[in-house]
């Protein structure tokens, strides 16, 4: 702390206030007398349940494909690797609505794969699967970027040592590489979950909006804003609490 110049305090404080003040301003608008009723309505509860379920599923999907992707990006060496990295991280900088349009033209009924999927009896449009796909699309880069960074920082020393002692590649990956980056894997997963929880643009463009099927909490908030601003504020506050709880839980897991 002693090596820190004193002047960083002011911009840091300003930045902190800039984030906290709007949250406090929103909390001040919550109608506490009706808060309980507003967040326990049928529509709110089903939106909350759907949000937690779909975000959980997308976080798992992100781990399933994101871990192998990160390992490849961090360890493999081939031409075009850096281009590939930029491309898979693209959803990070794309507006989510663009992701939604892209997904629509891939998995929609008239999309690139839509007809083949329909032949297989899989209809993705307007289903909960569409929500999970939209969330995974936007959340995946968050896991990949944090895990790949950690893998690069960790280096290959231990992996080389394990291999020279006769460990097979799978064993090295599961017993040496992944345990080393476990904190980053956990925080990356939480980040992906949180991003999925807040997903709005891709979902509304690609999956539609129907209570209990595709209307997640952010969609419900946006819809309630039309007719009942108090309910929208109450739900926003609820979403904020869920997000804070998730981050707090993750912090504890990572630090212990």
């Amino acid at each position: 702390m002693n090596t820190l110049p004193r002047w960083v305090l002011l911009p840091a404080l300003l930045g902190g206030l800039f984030v906290l003040l709007p949250l406090a301003a929103m909390a001040a608008r919550v109608q506490w007398s009706s808060f309980g009723a507003l967040i326990t309505s049928d529509a709110s509860l089903s939106a909350l349940r759907l949000s937690v379920q779909t975000s959980g599923s997308s976080a798992l999907l992100c781990v399933a494909v994101g871990v192998p992707m990160s390992v490849l990006l961090a360890r493999a060496e081939f031409r075009g690797l850096s281009l590939l990295r930029s491309l898979v991280l693209l959803p990070l900088v794309l507006p989510p609505v663009v992701g939604g349009i892209a997904l629509l033209y891939t998995f929609g009924r008239q999309g690139l794969l839509g007809r083949q999927l329909e032949v297989l009896g899989l209809e993705i449009a307007f289903s909960t699967t569409a929500v999970v796909l939209a969330q995974t699309f936007v959340a995946l880069p968050f896991l990949v970027i944090s895990l790949e960074g950690a893998l690069r920082t960790a280096g290959t020393r231990y992996e080389v040592a394990a291999a020279s002692l006769g460990a097979r590649p799978s064993r090295v990956l599961l017993r040496v590489t992944l345990p080393l980056v476990l904190p980053a894997l956990l925080s990356g997963t939480v980040l992906a979950f949180a991003r999925a929880l807040g997903e709005f643009g891709a979902t509304i463009t690609f999956a539609g909006s129907l209570q209990g099927t595709t209307r997640t909490l952010p969609l419900e908030i946006y819809l309630q804003r039309e007719s009942d601003p108090d309910a929208a504020v109450a739900l926003s506050f609820l979403l904020m609490i869920v997000a804070v709880l998730v981050i707090a839980a993750a912090r504890r897991r990572v630090s212990t």
Binding site: L104, G108, Q110, I204, Y222, E226
Partner: peptide
């Protein structure tokens, strides 16, 4: 029994024009 209740009439129109 709609498959989706959209936020705005434009969203409904988009779902129709795209053939979804």
């Amino acid at each position: 029994s709609p498959v989706s209740e959209e936020q705005s009439v434009t969203d409904v129109l988009n779902k129709v024009t795209s053939g979804e």
